[in-house]
């Protein structure tokens, strides 16, 4: 069933593969079905995940929210029940004030506009504003929540996907070997960084931004050069 041209460059409207007569076919970003075939809707490189899901890897800047994505957002407004959060998509997302670990009507999170949050997209329907949550499905924080201090770096959505993916991106592996820092990567291309010193944060940000078009070996050389420069 792997007749699909995985690794090939695909343009919008291209017929990528025929729908197999039997078995399951799992399609994700950039692919739809049309007249008995799988057709792409944007430009990119065809990839497949380990469980056989096909998707298109493009290099787009604009983020379109999708359910279960993790995002870094800026709180832009505070209403009685919700925060309005800018996640870089076409519309601001809604983050209920009670979608935090341990939040109750009496005990609300202390967040004001301008603050950063790390959350996951709970619903992303095209006709409604996206809804975020800062808890996992069991109600625990699970790493989500208010991001205090630190800095934000804007990268392309494909680099963000790489940084979140497994195996760990070579740039993070190389940086983690020599430096101490905390980061939160959003699929919307925003990367939050926090480090004990500003110099470390800037170094990590530069290394990540530069790593996009480098091979793993080039990345390791670059990080080694950066690390030796700061001693």
């Amino acid at each position: 069933m792997s007749a699909a041209p995985v690794g090939k460059v695909v343009g919008p409207g291209d017929k990528v593969l025929d729908i197999p007569a039997q078995g399951t076919l799992r399609l994700s970003a950039g692919l739809t079905t049309h007249e008995g075939g799988v057709v792409s809707t944007k430009g990119g490189v065809l990839r497949s995940t380990r469980n056989g899901q096909y998707f298109l890897e493009g290099r787009q800047k604009r983020y379109i929210p999708a359910e279960a994505d993790v995002v870094v957002g800026t709180v832009v407004d505070k209403h009685s029940e919700n925060f309005m959060v800018d996640i870089g998509g076409p519309f601001n997302a809604v983050l209920p004030q009670l979608s935090f670990e341990g939040a109750t009507r009496r005990n609300r999170p202390n967040i004001s506009s301008g603050d950063l949050v790390y959350g996951r997209v709970v619903s992303a329907h095209r006709d409604t504003d996206p809804v975020l949550s800062c808890t996992d499905s069991a109600g625990r924080a699970a790493g989500f929540g208010h991001l205090k201090g630190g800095m934000v770096l804007q990268v392309s959505t494909s680099l963000a996907r790489q940084l979140l993916g497994s195996p760990t991106a070579p740039v993070l592996e190389a940086l983690g070997g020599g430096l101490q820092f905390e980061m939160a990567v959003g699929l919307n291309g925003r990367v939050w960084l926090s480090a004990p010193t500003a110099a470390t944060a800037v170094l990590v940000a530069n290394a990540i931004a530069e790593s996009e078009f480098k091979t793993p070996t080039q990345v390791r050389t670059m990080v080694a050069r950066y690390l030796s420069a700061v001693g």
Binding site: G11, P12, T41, K42, G43, Q60, K61
Partner: peptide, 11 residues
């Protein structure tokens, strides 16, 4: 449009 990743039904 392709560079922006806007969905297109055809080129």
């Amino acid at each position: 449009l392709v560079d922006a990743g806007v969905p297109l039904s055809s080129m």
